[in-house]
């Protein structure tokens, strides 16, 4: 096994140890100490950037959610306001219509009452005329049938009694 037997040669161990220390020293100081930290810094910077970007995206998402929520609330509020305005207008219109209807009703009732009273008056006057005419006619009939002259007042009283039962 040369790995062991070569230790007998005076140059073997010294050369191996010298060169492994030299080359590993180069690897450690130039690559391990020189280059590795820079590469790790790049990786760390990238990780941090990714984390920051993710956080920013999350914040933006939350802001968008808030915006949407406030928009929803706003639209709900305005819808409610619109609905309220509509019901108010409806109520007002109904009340107005009622008031107008009541007024018109009143007027109509007044007119009706006036007309009724007029009709009543006309009826009484007509009744009176009918009484007069009937009394006259009754007087005439009595005179013609019996030749008895009936006083106008008597005829009138009799007719009135018959007419009004």
């Amino acid at each position: 096994m040369p790995q062991i037997s070569q230790f007998a040669e005076s140059w073997y161990a010294a050369s191996q140890i010298f060169w492994v220390l030299l080359t590993f020293g180069f690897v450690f100081f130039v690559i391990g100490r020189g280059m590795l930290p820079k590469i790790e810094a790049t990786v760390d910077a990238r990780d941090r950037k990714v984390a920051d970007d993710l956080a920013a995206a999350k914040a933006a998402h939350a802001a968008a959610d808030g915006l949407e929520e406030s928009y929803r609330q706003q639209s709900e509020a305005s819808r409610a306001a619109a609905q309220k305005a509509v019901t108010d207008a409806k109520d007002k219109a109904a009340r107005d219509a009622e008031k107008r209807l009541a007024k018109v009703d009143g007027e109509l009732a007044d007119k009706l009452a006036a007309a009724e009273s007029e009709i009543g008056a006309a009826r009484t006057s007509a009744m009176a005329e009918i009484e007069a005419v009937a009394a006259e006619a009754a007087g005439d009939l009595v005179a013609k049938l019996s030749g008895v002259k009936v006083a106008v007042a008597d005829a009138r009283a009799t007719v009135k009694a018959v007419l009004h039962g």
């Binding site: 010294a14 050369s15 191996q16 010298f18 060169w19 080359t23």
Partner: peptide, 19 residues
């Protein structure tokens, strides 16, 4: 180094190449 001789060897060559 003392009575030890330090030489450039095939082993050293491969270590340099690896580095």
């Amino acid at each position: 180094v003392g009575n030890h001789e330090v030489a450039f060897t095939t082993s050293a060559l491969w270590m340099v190449i690896a580095g």
